[in-house]
């Protein structure tokens, strides 16, 4: 990282942490439909390039969210400024900015690594990617930037996510969301899969980010540059898409199912889909219910209705 003191960070300098979904099962299933992975990457690379061009102090970090692991793919502050934007450094491959080939190379390595870590086939369905892991990595990076000094770029996280939510990651994802909220880092999300993502809806809602599910995926770049390229300071002045609704459903801690109604531990607020004798999270034992009636009324509705 360049010495901070030499840089003059104004309030419109951004640090964008980009989380790319590289779940192979998702991409093979979606390549038949509108957006293939290569198209997706070219849109994203153009977007990254435009962010770096918007302000020369802007910084982009790309984190790949794999099926089995996550990893840093690219950090614009680590590659020298001259080479990152100066175009057409021939490296045997086709013409493209140096930083793009850098991204692609580490992406390839990452995919290899991810494959080696996978033990079994995903079986039916797309499976989820490790959103919780990449969110945590992003937050760690942001925290490191926060600690460099009083002047730093304004961080935000952008999730480009397609795989369906993994309910088993519910607790980890929610914890990341809350810590993002606490450190005032907005989590923007752009969902490129078929369904809405409840996790990302909540993440954006809680942290004050933008949630978007593009309708025309072949125009992804347009969506990205229109909605997500603006720095946080300028966001105050423009009208961005508003969430129309947020899916607040939680996953139960016992079977990781997404549930509408459930049981809540009165001690630690853990969520269960069925009554237990003992809370698996905090270990508190629930007293014998006085009668059937009281267990029934003990069931709390999740909605405040």
């Amino acid at each position: 990282m360049a010495p901070i003191a030499s840089k003059l960070y104004t309030d419109d300098v951004s640090l964008v942490v980009l989380l790319l979904d590289t779940n192979p099962y998702f991409w093979t299933s979606s390549s038949s439909s509108s957006l293939s992975f290569s198209h997706f990457i070219s849109h994203v690379l153009s977007f990254v390039n435009s962010i770096l061009l918007l302000n020369q102090l802007n910084q982009v970090v790309i984190i790949a969210t794999g099926h089995n692991t996550c990893g840093y793919i690219y950090d614009s502050s680590l590659s020298s400024v001259s080479s990152s934007i100066s175009a057409n450094e021939s490296s045997g491959d086709a013409k493209m900015p140096a930083f793009c080939s850098e991204v692609l190379k580490s992406l390839e390595d990452f995919v290899k690594n991810d494959e080696s870590l996978s033990s079994v086939d995903a079986g039916n369905g797309v499976g989820s990617s490790l959103l919780s892991g990449s969110l945590s990595m992003a937050l760690c990076y942001v925290q490191r930037v926060f600690r460099t000094g009083p002047l730093h770029p304004q961080p935000r996280i952008l999730c480009l996510h397609g795989s369906p939510d993994g309910p088993e990651q519910y607790v980890a994802v929610m914890n990341s969301i809350f810590s993002a909220q606490r450190s005032m880092v907005p989590v923007d999300s752009c969902v490129i899969g078929a369904q809405h993502s409840a996790f990302l809806q909540q993440a954006s809602y809680i942290t004050g980010g933008v949630y978007l599910k593009p309708q025309y995926l072949d125009g992804l770049f347009q969506y990205l540059s229109t909605v997500f390229a603006t720095d946080l300071h300028s966001r105050k002045f423009i009208q961005l898409p508003k969430p129309v609704g947020v899916d607040f459903r939680a996953s139960c801690f016992c079977h990781k199912n997404t549930i509408d109604m459930g049981y809540i531990c009165s001690v630690c607020l853990s969520i269960f889909c069925m009554p237990h004798k003992k809370c698996s999270t905090c270990g508190s034992e629930y007293g014998q219910a006085q009668s059937d009636a009281s267990t029934l009324s003990g069931q709390k509705r999740k909605e405040p209705s």
Binding site: S30, I41, D121, G125
Partner: peptide, 19 residues
């Protein structure tokens, strides 16, 4: 909901090919 039935091998090869 998109169902997919691909093996691990296929999936990763496909991804690498795109790259």
């Amino acid at each position: 909901y998109v169902k997919c039935h691909v093996s691990k091998q296929e999936a990763y090869t496909c991804l690498r090919e795109s790259i």
